[in-house]
Structure formats: structure tokens, C-alpha cells
Design a protein around this nucleic acid. Structure first.
Length: 573
RNA sequence: CGGGAUGUGGCUCAGCCUGGUGGAGUGCAGCGUUCGGGACGCUGAGGUCGAAGGUUCAAAUCCUUUCAUCCCGACCA
């Protein structure tokens, strides 16, 4: 491709509403433009990167035996009522009425549609197992879309679905997809980790997320330094404590803590460590109050709590509810003398003598023994894992890191097949529900994740498999017939080698060409100019390392081949 | 949905407090000088100052409403 004929509207400055690096870079490099909140146009360069990701995904899905198809984006509300998600999904489901006032939605995922398709077609065990996938635009009306392609309301996703006769078959399908995902993200040169995850509203009982490691990731993941345990912090478990300090404190007593309603304030005011304070969280579980106790320096994990309580909805109570239920403003709730269900985190078993809220304004109680002074109904694992905790598998040390969720594999089981009556007839002639799995990859998010993981102050640095152009070939002297001839010759040569080459033949000064080449992130830059040509060389730059090499014009083919291999080898993760 | 902020040429922003002929940089078009890490000079095009209403002799500026966008939080696959 000749740059003069291509369209890459690069910008010196990023729009002020772009927060994260990938968002800024995608816009500055002329790859995307925003239409409205969370909705972007993919410009030629951006679309080219997306297509490269799609192609790798497609190759690996095909290799894993999945069959590509294409399902509708417009879906009837009735189908979603059958699965129960019409009510469950909430406002994130983009709904509308058609001209006949029929309820419709734009698909945020396609479990319903694919289950509907299969239940009408697959009737016999002889047709199973079956695996189908598609690349499609998904619609999720996020409360707060942000970070460019990272969390949009409209985005491209690869979603695959497996259908099996039994659990053993479903396990094989799941494992197959898990392995395919590992190959995909490795081929994309991403540093990633597969972690155990909560399965959320899609349903099912077991899932793994594929996380691209990056500081700007929206998810926190924990991993064990000793074994291969890794999990989303939403899911990561903690074992009950092994040891317990049974030292009983002296009688509890109330102390005045005027205006000190945060753990940090109370700790400073009383001169104690936050680890000695019990944080009492007032929670509304299915409309009813529950007190949840965690150590002052810990965070409540609402998903664990929800699972423990077997509740439909769990949320922190409003300040009004806190006042009504505990008789005190937010910040002074406590477990002493309160007739509400109380759940405490396991960690609170390790010692006694806590500082707790007194259920009245400006007062706390010290030397509290939860066993003696409060009515704790149950101890459970309800807090977030933090760095320094013990691995639930091997008791090794856990560490935390940030990740961008780019893929998710679920074992759905029979959630949808039972709700929607998708069955097959087995060898014995008996009707059985199909066992399902579903597997997603956020294609557009992968592009953003690539940039989050690979960039510098000058622009994006694309891994070769994702780069819209692998080589930018700069012609610095377009008025020189000699330079043009050589540039064109190299251009043809490189294309002949199967490389995606962008020949910068624009009427621009060299400085602009260098800046633009850095910005769009091609892993290889080649420079042809009158000066270098006079010396018989072509300048080559490895975009990732910044190293420059001089390749001889004579015998360029061999020198380039060797050099290119070393550049690409540097990308292997 | 709660809290905070911002809407002024394509982009980044000043002007608003204290009302009186709408600005700069960048980008764009033309000409000239330049030409290996975003050159310089001159000329030019481009704005219903987010929208509506109000106050006023006069509104980008003050008031009200509204829409949009962003940030924090809550919510959530």
C-alpha cells in the first residue's frame, strides 16, 4: 500500500477525553474515531488490525474443529424470556420495540439464539459433539463506557458454543477451547494468564478468564508464587485460618470517637493498627439487612457473600437504611447488641480484642470478643484476597496484578438447554438435555490490550501478527528518481516476501514521516534516502527495541531476511 | 442513579470572575524559502461560542431549563 493513496489521519495531540494509553494511541494513529459514548468507527488502519486478530482467531478456531457461522444481531425478546435473562440481564440489554410493538433486543451475547437454532436441528446423539462460532458486533448498554475500545457499548466479539452428549464430552470441548485460546494469545504475542473466574450472569459452574497483564487492566487477579493457581480476585478463595488466638480480652468498653467514621480515621485517633479494627458493613441481601464483618484493612467480596448467602442480589445499604437498621450514621455500625444476622470473615477467628462501631454516632467499642460480645451466625470466606495471603491450594504466597479480560471460557452445563428445552435422543432412545459450553474473545479489546502492553511515548508498537502494516518503507526523497526507483524496487521485493508493507511516498518532510511511522507502530521501519543510498545502505529500525541497523543495498535480500528474523524472534513471548 | 467537572473552527485550549467588534497553537488551502526526527515566512478558508428560554440598550460571558461528554462512586457479564 502506498501511503499517499491510503487514509491515516494521524494527530499530534490526543482528544482530552481519552484517559488510557490505548485510547489515545488508537485515535492519534488514525485507527478509530468516536461516534458517541462507547461507540467507535474503525478507520482503515484500525480495521486492518482488527482483521488480523480475527484471522488468527479464525485459524485457531477452525483448527480446534469449530465451525464458523453468523447469527443475527436483532433478537426477539420472547427468546430471552424463555431463558429468564430478559428480566435478569437488566439495563445493559439494549431493548427496543419494532413497528408491531414486539419486544426486541440487540444481542449482547448469543446463547439464546444458538440454543434456539440447535434445538430445532439437532435431535440425535449422532450429531454431537458440535462446535460453532462467529465473529459479531455485540451490544451492551454499559452504564459507563470508557477507555476507548476497552469497554465500549458496541464491540466485536468472537463467540463459540459447544454442544455435547455428556459431561465427559463437555470437558473435552472445554479443554479444547482452553488450549486453542492459549495458542491464540501466544500467537498474538501477548503476555497473559488464564485464571479461574466467577461465572456471573451467563451462568454455569466453571470458567476461566484469559487476562492480558497490564497496569491499566480493570480486573485484579491473584496468582500463587509457588504453584500454578491463579484466579480473578472476585473468585479467589481463602482457606479458614489454621491457628486461633483464644486470649480473651478484658471487658469491652465504649470510647468516644467524634467524627471518626472511616477505618483510617479511627485507627489514627485511637492509635491502633487498622488490622485491629473490625469493619462492619451493612448489606441489603434480597431486601433484608445483614451485617458483614471484615478486618479493617480488607475489602468485602460481594460475589462471595452473595454465593454464601445464596441471595439473588447483594448490595451495600444506603445511608438511610444504615440509620434505620443500626440506629447510627454510616461509619459507626457494629455487631454488639444488634438484632440482625451477622456474618464474619474467617480472618476474624484469628484473634480477639477488636475495635468495633458502637451503633451510635461518634463512638466505638474496644476490647470486643466476637464470641463473647456479639452473636455471629457464621464465619465464611467473604473478603477479597490481598497480596501476602496464602494460596488455597499449596499455602504458597499469593501476589496480585492487574489484567484486561480478553477471553472467557465457560462450562454452561444445561442452564440454557433445560430452560429452552434443547434436547437430543441418546443411544437408548431417551431424551437428554444437551450439555453446553460458551467461549468468548473480545476482538476489539484484544487490539486495545496489545497497545496497552506494547507502546512507548512515540506511539504504538504492534506485535507483527497484529500490526496493520508489518513494514513502513520510508522514501525520504520523493523528488529523486534514483531514490524512488530503489524504494519502489524494495517495495515490490518486500511484498513478494508476503509482507504487509506501507510505502511512505507522501510529500512530507522526513521528520513527519519518522513520527508517523513510530505512531502507527509497524514493527519494522526501513528508510531509503539519498544520503543512505549514496553510502550503499538501507537503514532498518526495530520499532520495539529502537535499534537501528544498516543493511547493504547489495545483497539486501539475504541481509534483510536475517535481520527480520531476529526482530520477529524478539516478539516471541 | 448519586457526587464532581467540561461544552468556544477538524484537534488542543485561552477568553467568562468584572457583559461592549470572538482569539492563539496545531491542522487545512495557496505561494515562496527549506528538506534525515513533527521547518520558517506570507496569504487564505473555516465558528448559529452545545441547544432553548430569560435578564439587559447590549450575552461566549449573568440567570433558568435542557442535551451531550468526561471523571469518581454505586450497578453489572
Amino acid at each position: 500500500m502506498r501511503w499517499s493513496r491510503y487514509y491515516i489521519p494521524t494527530l499530534k495531540e490526543a482528544p482530552s477525553d481519552a484517559e488510557v494509553i490505548s485510547h489515545k494511541m488508537l485515535i492519534r494513529a488514525g485507527m478509530i474515531r468516536r461516534l458517541t459514548a462507547g461507540v467507535y468507527s474503525y478507520l482503515p488502519l484500525g480495521w486492518k488490525a482488527i482483521r488480523k486478530v480475527e484471522e488468527i482467531v479464525r485459524q485457531e478456531m477452525d483448527a480446534a474443529g469449530s465451525l464458523e457461522l453468523r447469527l443475527p444481531a436483532v433478537q426477539p425478546g420472547d427468546l430471552w424470556k424463555e431463558s429468564g435473562r430478559w428480566e435478569q440481564y437488566g439495563k445493559e440489554l439494549l431493548r427496543f420495540l419494532d413497528r408491531h410493538e414486539r419486544e426486541c433486543c440487540l444481542g449482547p451475547s448469543h446463547e439464546e439464539v444458538i440454543t434456539d437454532l440447535i434445538r430445532g436441528e439437532v435431535r440425535s446423539y449422532r450429531r454431537l459433539p458440535l462446535s460453532l462460532y462467529q465473529m459479531q458486533t455485540k451490544f451492551r448498554d454499559e452504564i459507563r463506557p470508557r477507555f476507548g475500545l476497552m469497554r465500549g457499548r458496541e464491540f466485536i466479539m468472537k463467540d463459540a458454543y459447544s454442544f455435547d452428549r455428556d459431561d465427559a464430552g463437555a470437558d473435552i470441548s472445554y479443554k479444547g477451547m482452553y488450549e486453542a485460546y492459549k495458542r491464540i494469545f501466544s500467537r498474538l504475542s501477548l503476555k497473559f494468564k488464564a485464571v479461574e473466574a466467577d461465572s456471573g450472569s451467563i451462568g454455569g459452574n466453571f470458567s476461566h478468564e484469559f487476562m492480558v497483564l497490564a497496569q491499566t487492566g480493570e480486573d485484579t487477579i491473584v496468582s500463587c508464587q509457588a504453584c500454578d493457581y491463579a484466579a480473578n480476585v472476585e473468585r479467589a478463595e481463602l482457606q479458614p485460618p489454621a491457628a486461633k488466638d483464644a486470649t480473651v480480652p478484658p471487658a469491652m468498653r465504649e470510647v468516644s470517637t467524634p467524627g471518626k467514621h472511616s477505618v483510617a480515621d479511627v485507627a489514627v485517633f485511637l492509635g491502633v493498627s487498622p488490622e485491629l479494627i473490625v469493619k462492619t458493613l451493612v448489606v441489603e441481601a434480597d431486601g433484608k439487612p445483614v451485617l458483614v464483618l471484615v478486618r479493617g484493612d480488607r475489602d468485602l467480596n460481594e460475589i462471595k457473600l452473595k454465593n454464601y448467602l445464596k441471595a439473588e442480589t447483594v448490595r451495600l445499604a444506603s445511608p438511610e437504611q444504615v440509620r434505620e437498621w443500626t440506629g447510627s450514621p454510616v461509619g459507626f455500625a457494629g455487631p454488639v447488641r444488634l438484632e440482625l444476622p451477622i456474618i464474619a470473615d474467617y480472618e476474624l477467628l484469628t484473634r480477639e480484642g477488636w475495635v468495633v462501631g458502637a451503633n451510635k454516632a461518634d463512638a466505638h467499642i474496644v476490647d470486643v470478643s466476637l464470641g463473647r460480645d456479639a452473636m455471629v451466625q457464621g464465619y465464611a470466606d467473604v473478603r477479597n484476597v490481598a497480596a501476602g495471603d496464602c494460596c488455597p491450594r499449596c499455602r504458597g504466597l499469593l501476589e496480585t496484578m492487574r489484567g484486561i479480560e480478553v477471553g472467557h471460557v465457560f462450562k454452561l452445563g444445561t442452564k440454557y438447554s433445560e430452560a429452552m428445552n434443547a434436547t437430543f435422543v441418546d443411544e437408548k432412545g431417551e431424551e437428554q438435555p444437551i450439555i453446553m459450553g460458551c467461549y468468548g474473545i473480545g476482538v476489539t479489546r484484544v487490539v486495545a490490550a496489545c497497545i496497552e502492553q506494547n507502546h512507548d511515548e512515540y506511539g504504538t508498537i504492534f506485535p507483527p501478527p497484529v500490526a496493520p502494516f508489518e513494514v513502513v518503507l520510508m522514501n525520504l526523497d520523493i523528488t529523486s528518481a534514483e531514490v524512488c526507483a530503489k524504494a519502489d524496487e524494495l517495495y515490490t521485493f518486500l511484498q513478494g516476501k508476503g509482507l504487509d508493507v506501507l510505502l511512505d511516498d507522501r510529500e512530507e518532510r522526513p521528520g513527519s514521516k519518522f513520527k508517523d511511522a513510530d505512531l502507527i507502530g509497524a514493527p519494522i521501519q526501513l528508510v531509503v534516502g539519498a544520503k543512505s543510498l549514496a553510502r550503499g545502505i538501507v537503514e532498518a529500525k526495530d520499532r520495539r527495541t529502537g535499534h537501528k541497523t544498516e543493511l547493504p543495498v547489495e545483497n539486501f535480500a539475504d541481509a534483510f531476511a536475517v535481520w527480520k528474523d531476529t526482530v520477529y524472534a524478539g516478539w516471541i513471548v
